[in-house]
Design a protein around this nucleic acid. Structure first.
Length: 379
RNA sequence: GCCGCUUUCGUCUAGUGGCCGAGGACGCUGCCCUCUCACGGCGGAAACACGGGUUCGAUUCCCGUAGGCGGCACCA
């Protein structure tokens, strides 16, 4: 089945070069194949550098891939492959075949880059009398420039993505969608649903380009499915929440910005205003062309209304019900916009009522007063 | 160079001879909702690589060409 080969690396390399320039497939010449046992023993005794080669039969080898159906290779083009350095040091193909047999592997599911290894492994299996597992070669995943995502790169990438605030379930779901599609057009799956629906037979044959925007979308879907408590837990565990902040505080704010988040790391910027009001330009309080005097009046009236609400029923529904008449009377934009800016300090934010509920009565009033003071500075 | 795999909107894909004047999703975009942003709702633009066959009829089957990718180690 196998024999010692004493060809040097330089010889082999030179051979390969000349074969390639002549337009042939590079393969081992078979030079040491016919060495007699005694010749080989002598070489070994002389400590000549060697390797063990397997006599690859010059036949066609076919196998059925679960994804690509029947695949045939002409082994005559391969030549005798090196399977081990010594009897105790097998190379990859031999080691893999023996491992799989000993571990009773039934299915070998791996990347398409292993396709050319498969016939070599099959030929070894047959020679050793091993059972042939079923093969499935998955398409590769490419970067946006269409180059292969290297193993080393993607291994760290998963960790990197987790650090950026992508949920593991979302990552899994997104990866499943790269090269596979459910019969039902469904795209967001729970772990159980995915196990149920996934089918190797439906896997795409060509490689897929990694689409970061879709990952964002999938992740945002998962974030929204989380309860506020669960989301807070993820935020705290991942280090995305500000330190020294009460859990229930995080929970409250998490609910506020949940549907605006694409990844956990967004929380920091999205929720910053609720922990501390940043300075903002006074003119941000002005709704369109409204006179600042009028904005001040509106805020004054709003304060009166807000102050009249009991601390115990300081909810967004109560706030909305109480402030709605004022909005209708003086113009919704002229009333709600400045309130929202006053409590958030941002041009874009969640609605004013929910923010006030999260802030609580005292802090809400403090921020409203501050806005009036800021407007006063201009006069 | 040789071998293998592969080829539907920008991207991920549905599609297995007539249901396709090609469906869904992300992204992009118009309108609605609305105090802003986001969410949500309703629309829009956007693709069968090319050339030959086979067939009454090809996105679907066959052949070729071109493109993409992977593999060609005394690495794994």
């Amino acid at each position: 089945f196998a024999y010692h080969c004493f060809c040097t690396k330089d010889e082999l390399e030179a051979q390969r070069q000349s074969q390639m320039t002549q337009g042939f497939a590079p393969k081992y010449s078979g030079k040491c194949r016919h060495l007699s046992a005694s010749e080989a023993a002598a070489q070994l005794k002389a400590n000549r550098d060697s390797v063990i080669r397997f006599r690859v039969p010059e036949t066609h080898v076919s196998f059925t891939d679960m994804i690509r159906k029947k695949i045939t290779f002409d082994m005559g083009l391969v030549g005798d492959i090196a399977v081990a350095k010594t009897e105790r040091e097998p190379f990859y193909n031999l080691a893999a075949v023996i491992d799989d047999e000993e571990m009773k592997i039934t299915h070998v599911i791996r990347g398409e880059d292993h396709l050319a290894n498969t016939p070599k492994q099959i030929v070894l299996q047959r020679a050793l009398g091993f059972t042939e597992p079923v093969y499935a070669h998955l398409p590769l995943i490419f970067d946006s420039d269409r180059s292969k995502m290297s193993k080393r790169h993607s291994a760290t990438a998963v960790v990197e993505y987790r650090k950026e605030g992508y949920l593991s379930q979302a990552l899994l779901n997104f990866m499943a969608l790269l090269g596979w599609h459910s019969e039902s057009d469904k795209e967001i799956f729970s772990r159980e649903e995915l196990i149920e629906a996934f089918d190797l037979g439906r896997v795409q044959k060509s490689g897929a380009v990694f689409n970061a925007e879709k990952l964002d979308w999938v992740n945002s879907q998962y974030i929204r499915q989380l309860s506020n408590v669960e989301l807070a837990r993820e935020l705290i565990a991942g280090g995305f929440a500000p330190e020294r902040t009460e859990n229930h505080e995080i929970t409250k704010v998490a609910g506020l910005v949940k549907e605006r988040m694409k990844k956990l790391s967004d929380f920091k910027t999205l929720a910053a205003f609720s922990f501390e009001l940043a300075d903002y330009p006074t003119k941000l309080l002005i709704w369109k062309e409204t006179a600042s005097e009028r904005i001040r009046e509106n805020l004054r009236s709003a304060i009166t209304v807000v102050a009249s609400i009991k601390t115990t029923s300081f909810t967004k529904d109560q706030l909305q019900a109480a402030l709605q008449p004022l909005g209708e009377e003086r113009g919704r934009g002229e009333v709600f916009w400045p309130i929202r800016v006053a409590v958030s300090g941002n041009e874009a934010s969640p609605g004013p009522f929910e923010i006030m509920e999260a802030l609580g009565k005292d802090e809400s009033l403090r921020r409203l007063e501050l806005a009036i003071a800021k407007l006063g500075e201009n006069h």
